[in-house]
Design a protein around this nucleic acid. Sequence first.
DNA 1: CTAAAACCTGACGTTGACGTCAGAGGCAAG
DNA 2: CTTGCCTCTGACGTCAACGTCAGGTTTTAG
Lengths: 120, 120
Amino acid sequence: MRIGELAARTGVSVRALRYYEEQRLLTSERSPSGQRVYPDSAVDRVRMIQHLYAAGLPSRSIEPLLPCVMTGEVTPELLKRLRAERQRIEGRIDDLVQTRDKLDTIISVASAYEGRTCPR
Amino acid sequence: MRIGELAARTGVSVRALRYYEEQRLLTSERSPSGQRVYPDSAVDRVRMIQHLYAAGLPSRSIEPLLPCVMTGEVTPELLKRLRAERQRIEGRIDDLVQTRDKLDTIISVASAYEGRTCPR
DNA sequence: CTAAAACCTGACGTTGACGTCAGAGGCAAG
DNA sequence: CTTGCCTCTGACGTCAACGTCAGGTTTTAG
C-alpha cells in the first residue's frame, strides 16, 4: 500500500508517517518511481508507535525498542530498556491515578453544592 | 518566602515559577523593592500545578480549574470542566495500562530466552 | 491525452514549557 | 563599603512532533 492509504487506515497524517521514517521508526520499500510502499504489517507498527508516543516515550526511546516489540526478538540490553520503560509508564500511571482521585474528591464534594450556586 | 526558597522546596526552577505567574497559575505579593513574596500555601499550589501538568493538561486548562481545586469552591461551569478533565485523565490511564500490559507480555516472553542470547 | 489527485523532497512555521543570557538593582556578611 | 549571592525584567533559544507551503513528478480517472 502507499502512504495515503496507510495514513487513512491508521488515522495519522501523511506528514507524520514521513516523520516516523525520518526518525527510523518506520521503513518503506520504494516503487521504481520513488514512492513509498508499505506491507500490511505497517498498520500494526504505526499503531504501536502511536501507543508508545501516547505513553510519553520520545522517538529516541522508541527506536531501539520497536524492532523487538514487533518481532519478539530481544537482547539482554533491550530487555533492560523494556523493563526501565515499563517502570516509567507504571510511575506515570500512579501519578495519573492520584490526580484522578484528587479530582474525584473535589467533584464529589462540589456536587453536594449543586443547585445552590457557588458558595462564594 | 522568596522565589528561590519556593523553588528549592518544590523542586521546580525559578524560571518555571515566573512562568506559572505569567500564565496566571500562581500569584505573588511583592516586597517594597519588587521581589516576589509567597505564603507557605504556595508550596502546595505549585505541587498541584505540577500534578496537573503531569496529567497532560496545558496551562489554559489548568488556569480556570485551579482556584476551585485549591479552595473547594465551584460553579456549575467549573464542575463541568472538572468532569471533562477527569474523563480525559481516565482515558490516558486506560491507554497507559494497555501499553504497560503489552510491554509486560513482551517482557515475560522475552525473559524465557534469557541466558541464551538473542535468537537472531 | 489531459486534468485531478496523490506523491516526492526540502524547508520554514508552530506550540508549550521552560532554559539561558544580558544588564541592572537589592541585601546580608565581613 | 564592597563583595557575592539573590532577584528583577525583557528577550532570544530549544526541543519534539508534527503542520504547511513551494515546486516538481507520478498515478489514476475520464
